[in-house]
């Protein structure tokens, strides 16, 4: 294809991505180093029936001039990144100096919003991903040995947790897990504690969110592995059997190595996606015990006063973290590409 033809074919999609993905990223970076103008005050004398009072009001004219001159606000450098709401450099330094033990330092770190969110986001990402791969693999092996008429039905129901809107899925589980809901009541019965509430404890809230994460993403792993099992080399499996491999050994030494590229694929995709965790926190109303980076941005943007600069700084930090997670994917794609050509 000629360069010119390619250009015209690719132009619409390139424009869409440039305008609504690339520019916003730039705009986020720019916003994160500016703060809104501080309000300019002026004193006004009000002469009323009860004498003259002096009042301090915001000088709208002066503000308008300031906004005209510098529409982005005041240049703040990296100060937003370093403040208490984000990297909290001075607070971390204080905590490091004043605490003798590591655990004391860490518990103080947990009070800072960014590190609190980071702790949950990372825990969530790195527990959900391996567990969903294991569960997905087990389901795939199980379904694969079913009769073929049953397979379709099982796949249909298995897809539901993944297809359903994340917010809706988490709400459905949230209502069941409520202390008055069926699962909540059941857990109270199991624990023999009528006051047990999953929402009240940080640890249980984390477990609840992680269980939701596995529930909603395991179907993806299942479907990918199931498709991989269809291409399993029959002769390798048969020769393993003739050599006397047990069922477990067949899985360990034939099936798993065959699926390994898919495991990497699922792991990389899921690491990136789980890092975004956000809707379940809204659905489970878990923000008192667990926050994530995406949730902080949402919270900053959604409040009465929109904290655009603060949200932008968190966004940039999130983008940096995602890029780190993305690096292995890029390396893999690069290797595939160079192997092909």
């Amino acid at each position: 294809m000629k360069h010119k033809t390619f250009f015209w074919f690719f132009l619409p999609t390139a424009l869409a991505m440039l305008l609504f993905i690339a520019f916003p990223i730039v705009s986020v970076v720019v916003q994160s180093v500016f703060t809104p103008h501080e309000a300019v005050f002026k004193s006004v004398e009000n002469s009323g029936p009860f004498g003259t009072t002096t009042e301090t009001i915001i000088d709208q004219e002066a503000m308008a001039i300031l906004k005209d001159e510098r529409p982005l606000g005041q240049f703040a450098g990296l100060s937003i990144y370093l403040d208490r709401g984000h990297l909290a450099v001075s607070e971390v330094g204080d905590a490091w100096r004043s605490n003798e033990t590591m655990s004391g330092f860490l518990s103080e770190l947990r009070n800072l919003p960014f590190y609190r969110a980071m702790a949950f986001t990372l825990t969530y990402t790195f527990t959900v991903t391996p567990l969903l791969i294991i569960l997905g693999f087990a389901i795939a092996v199980g379904v694969n040995s079913l009769h073929r008429h049953l397979k379709g039905l099982v796949i249909f129901f298995s897809l539901l947790p993944m297809i359903v809107t994340p917010l809706i899925g988490s709400l459905i589980l949230f209502w069941m897990i409520d202390s008055r809901g069926i699962l909540g009541t059941f857990l109270q019965y199991l624990a023999n504690d009528p006051d047990l509430s999953l929402k009240a404890s940080t640890g249980l809230t984390w477990i609840m969110l992680i269980v939701y994460g596995i529930w909603s993403s395991a179907p993806f792993a299942f479907v990918v592995f199931y498709a991989g099992l269809q291409t399993l080399p029959k002769d390798t499996l048969e020769s393993a059997m003739i050599d006397g491999a047990t069922r477990w050994q067949q899985i360990r030494y034939v099936v798993i190595p065959h699926l390994m590229p898919l495991v990497t694929f699922v792991a990389l995709i899921q690491l990136m996606d789980n890092f975004r965790v956000f809707e379940p926190i809204v659905g489970f109303k878990a923000e008192a015990h667990a926050t994530s980076l995406s949730w902080i941005i949402f919270n900053d943007l959604g409040g009465e006063t929109q904290l655009l600069s603060s949200a932008a700084a968190t966004s940039v930090l999130t983008i940096i973290c995602v890029s780190i997670l993305l690096a292995p994917v890029l390396v893999r794609t690069w290797r595939d590409f160079t192997a092909k050509t």
């Binding site: 705009s27 986020v28 890092f275 975004r276 983008i319 993305l326 994917v329 890029l330």
Partner: peptide, 26 residues
């Protein structure tokens, strides 16, 4: 074309909420 696909992959990885904070002001 390879580099365009790589850029698309990077864009795919961006959490939408981080982009939203870039949209609001404009």
């Amino acid at each position: 074309t390879f580099w365009l696909l790589i850029i698309a992959l990077i864009f795919r990885a961006m959490p939408p909420i981080t982009l939203v904070s870039g949209y609001l002001l404009p």
